[in-house]
Write a protein that binds this DNA or RNA. Structure first.
Lengths: 207, 207
DNA sequence: CACAATTTTGGAGTGACTGCAAGTTGGATA
DNA sequence: TATCCAACTTGCAGTCACTCCAAAATTGTG
């Protein structure tokens, strides 16, 4: 049997809680919704909520593992002979075209980002996710390059690559919040992405 | 008059609370000390503690503004004609020699780092400080380079420079926690610092 | 059907933090 | 010096995230 009744119910309950919580947060803001309210809306006890999610933030972060793994995917799926930085440049440019949500944040203006932005707890969480991303990418890079354990090249490279994507997304979000329409943001972001990745490839030597 | 009785008392109270709190945290760990205990030990009410410090973490972070400003100092005080990355390399190598505490953390093994390390709240705080550092350095760099507002070169450069120092300090701490004596860490860290700063200067182009 | 394992629940804490109203104290003014 | 205002401190009551525990309720098994 693939999944007994017990397991199915657990999964359903978990999803119901997470969905309802996310809905409430989107509607009214993370800090304006109590766990008790989520529990009531999901028709379970507060204790049950904490049985499934160990913190309130986890209620909103249910798919962050995907985000954490993203850079490793880019690395893994790059073309044969394609350089690492090249791959990230290509992927990021593609993400701009498709307004992909996975890079740090989506277009910036939507409800999701707003919820995160005005909750200190959630932004802290986001920084945490970013660190995990760095460390994950560093491990993957180390494997890819056959580096010694203890070699800090992969670690530094991971940090610098993700610093670029992080800052680009930060910019995109700032522009969106400033009211710029996406038609203006897109091209500008593309130009800045090229600039940033150039910097990444060539180094800061001549500063 | 430079400072009335009122102001002096305020300053004294603030310092007393902070000192006593830090002492308690060092002795027993951040999470094992309640604000109520700090208040009692400092002979004030809990409310007074929160009058001076808006969160419990602030009780332990009383001089983080220094840490935030550090990179800007390095930038400001670099020699005439000295490149930006050069200056940071020099400063960091010097910091290794003197086991300077300002770079992220001190040698790693002391009570301070341990307190931070086993408190999630404090490590989150530290990440926050690092972000502020980045943003501060980015501003300073933008001024120094006469960059347009909106130019992302200073922002990226700041992130990459501080990524290097952050990772080096992270390494130092990891080695210390692994029981390595400083005599072994120092030289290794110096070598790794050169490697990392070389990477920073020359870019990741050939990855 | 009964028994065991797992989940759910209620209830009673703890601890950070807030808001308010009532003291208390320092300093300026009459 | 007496007085009064503003700032500071305190106690109290409350909110909310989160924990621990023991008593139901539910589900899978023999």
């Amino acid at each position: 049997m693939a999944e007994g009744l017990r397991e199915r119910k657990k999964r359903e309950t978990r999803e119901r809680i997470s969905d309802i919580a996310t809905g409430l947060f989107l509607a009214r803001g993370f800090d304006n919704v109590t766990v008790a309210e989520v529990a009531r809306a999901a028709d379970v006890s507060v204790n049950t909520v904490f049985n499934y999610f160990s913190t309130k933030e986890d209620l909103f972060a249910d798919r962050y593992d995907l985000v954490v793994d993203l850079p490793q995917q880019v690395l893994r799926e790059r073309g044969p002979g394609e350089g690492v930085v090249r791959a990230f440049r290509r992927d990021y440019l593609g993400a701009i075209e498709t307004r992909d949500w996975r890079y740090g944040l989506n277009a910036g203006n939507d409800a999701f980002s707003r919820v995160i932005n005005d909750s200190p707890a959630l932004t802290a969480r986001l920084r945490d996710v970013h660190l995990q991303r760095e460390q994950g990418l560093a491990r993957a890079l180390a494997g890819e390059l056959g580096a010694d354990p203890g070699d800090l090249v992969p670690r530094v490279a991971a940090a610098q690559i993700l610093a670029v994507t992080r800052i680009l997304s930060e910019r995109a979000q700032a522009m969106t919040l400033a009211g710029e329409p996406w038609e203006r943001i897109g091209p500008l972001l593309t130009a800045q992405a090229h600039q940033a990745f150039d910097l990444l490839e060539n180094g800061l030597g001549d500063l």
